[in-house]
Design a protein around this nucleic acid. Structure first.
Lengths: 345, 345
DNA sequence: GTGGTCGATGGAACCGGTTCCGGTTCCGTC
DNA sequence: GACGGAACCGGAACCGGTTCCATCGACCAC
């Protein structure tokens, strides 16, 4: 309703000067700057971002592509991204990406292709080459958290190391019959998160069997299951149902899966950790409640970091100098709680 | 990079005709329309939404204000909104609103005040009068899901009825010592969701005590607790810790709280539903897993509906005709599972 | 005193669409 | 065959900012 020309008129300057005064670009005498600012405040002037982005080509808006929001990990990442963008004065446009199909194509070919976002943050999505190229042709930085594909930048934990760390913890406790409940792709796709964690699991087991000190025979089994509590519960019932060859420890690829396993064990009358040790990954909000040993990662922090990397690529001044060591994998650490214990002979 | 003038030149028409052909407004001969469309496809033309919204005043973008994303209910609502907006060709700009403070003011005064969104969907937020007026002055429709304040439209379940329904279920089963674990505000603020559910609880209890048929003495207690599993767990331990006056049934104001109570009961060696009946609200994704009796509501559906109402207020053609009966409260229903049973004498 | 630099400012072009206004052309009707 | 109206299309204005370029004065160095 009120345009910058109104402000200019009221302040008795030209549009050009008003623009400079309000945006801070170029030289304006302090005195006239004040006049302009006061005039703007007086008539409640608010700049139109559309007009600005039309000419500058910058939208102050970042697209976030995420496969689902309703899971603890993704929710945390999203919150971390949101907070950081808001602080930097950016908008966040959300694209809840269907795994595949026509809707997915629409997101990339239509929504992201337009000039509405300056950069794209992609979470746990395996990007196709065409999808990446479409964005690169328009010179939009892509920052990925997890997932795969040729992005401009990628933040990732070392999932293979996570698998090894969790497994070694169980091995150290003397377990020799261990099951790994991995996500879809644990058995097959070695590039996926699930595959990497499973690989770490197998590697640790192999090292223990061949291995240095007291080489032992370790029975290891990998089961693919839907991540999340129901998946863990179902898998747990199956896995623990037959007393004959029941494992003494389970490494679940996510805490939510681990919760499901714990419930399944309880349902079957098994004590945790007396009869079964369970370790997860994430350090979920409820991990303490389930007294769950886990490999912690910090999704909200990952979101924050992704934003900083993206803004830096855009050359935005708002972000502080210290570059995060962008090549290195993100930190994870073992948190020992009460769900794992030394195996009872 | 490629503008509509390029398309026009290639197709041998004016900018005006090219615009009409591509947007579908106004009359264009089918033959020339095809020429334009083909030309556009040939050079990979994609319209700039900024330029369009600058002149039309419409952004095809809806702002969503939500207090947190990382909870099942809110995640579901958000997914429902996202899907529906995407289908209608709208973008979704997310504002994760801090409950109060300077950041909240920024969202309303800066982010939402600009011309970036056509409408605002607000979830479970109590809007201040000034916040509403700021948006109304700019003629932006506000659609609320839950929460309070003078919005243009509001979708809500009948929380008082929910409280009564849940409580009556427990009363019918013969329980006479019942605790209600409500959210913050259950005791105080009667306009809040927590307050309304608590009011329904009290009302049902009162009706049973005075009431018609076999008037009974019912002991009822209301406890305020943080919603969510940890809150329910803590409250459960406290509530159930003293065998002396332990309730035989708990009405938890959310399923997540109920999960916490169930875990607390199990921790204390109490059987559900043998020693304790538990009922929740939401029909959470995991309710079946916990075999939880609950009052179901459908957050994703509520999100979808909110979008339809908003688009209709914007006069968007994309939405189908049948008006949802917007005054009426949204549907809820009792789902009986195994966590509630007749009280054992 | 002269030339040069820098700060302050205004005029005007421009970003990329949409839409008003007016002019042709075409068709149906009397 | 004349006429009215609708379809079709182009020119130009416009949305609301940003920024290039030119102008002007002040100040400094020589």
């Amino acid at each position: 309703m009120t345009a910058i020309s109104d402000v200019a008129r009221l302040a008795g300057v030209s549009k050009a000067t008003a623009s400079r005064a309000l945006s801070g670009h170029g030289h304006v005498a302090e005195q006239t700057r004040l006049r302009v600012v006061r005039a703007a405040a007086e008539i409640g002037y608010i700049a139109s971002p559309d007009a600005a982005s039309l000419v500058t080509g910058r939208t102050k808006n970042v697209g976030v592509v995420i496969p689902f929001v309703n899971s603890w990990f993704f929710g945390e990442v999203l919150e971390g991204i949101e907070r950081t963008l808001l602080d930097a004065g950016y908008d966040l446009t959300l694209y809840n990406l269907p795994v595949s199909g026509e809707a997915r194509a629409r997101v990339f070919d239509f929504f992201l292709a337009r000039k509405r976002v300056d950069a794209v943050i992609v979470i746990a999505v395996d990007l196709a080459e065409a999808e990446v190229q479409g964005l690169e042709r328009r010179e939009k930085p892509i920052v990925c958290i997890g997932g795969s594909g040729e992005a401009s930048a990628r933040l990732s934990i070392d999932d293979r190391a996570v698998g090894m760390l969790a497994t070694e913890h169980l091995l150290h406790l003397g377990h020799t019959r261990i099951a790994h409940l991995g996500g879809i792709g644990a058995a097959g796709d070695p590039a996926s998160v699930a595959g990497l964690r499973a690989a770490g699991f197998r590697e640790a087991v192999a090292a223990a069997s061949d291995g240095a000190a007291p080489a032992r025979d370790v029975e290891a089994i990998v089961i693919e299951t839907e991540m999340g509590m129901p998946g863990g519960f179902e898998a747990g019932l199956q896995l623990l149902g037959h007393p004959a060859h029941r494992p003494t420890a389970v490494f679940a690829a996510s805490d939510e899966t681990a919760f499901g396993v714990i419930r399944a064990a309880e349902r079957l009358g098994l004590a945790v950790p007396g009869d079964l040790s369970v370790i997860g990954v994430d350090d979920h909000e409820h991990a303490a409640l389930f007294d769950l040993t886990t490999i912690a990662q910090t999704p909200a922090e990952q979101g924050r970091l992704a934003v900083e990397v993206a803004l830096r690529m855009l050359g935005d001044d708002a972000v502080a100098d210290p570059l995060p060591d962008s090549g290195a994998p993100l930190a994870t650490r073992l948190i020992v709680r009460g769900s794992t214990a030394r195996v009872t002979a």
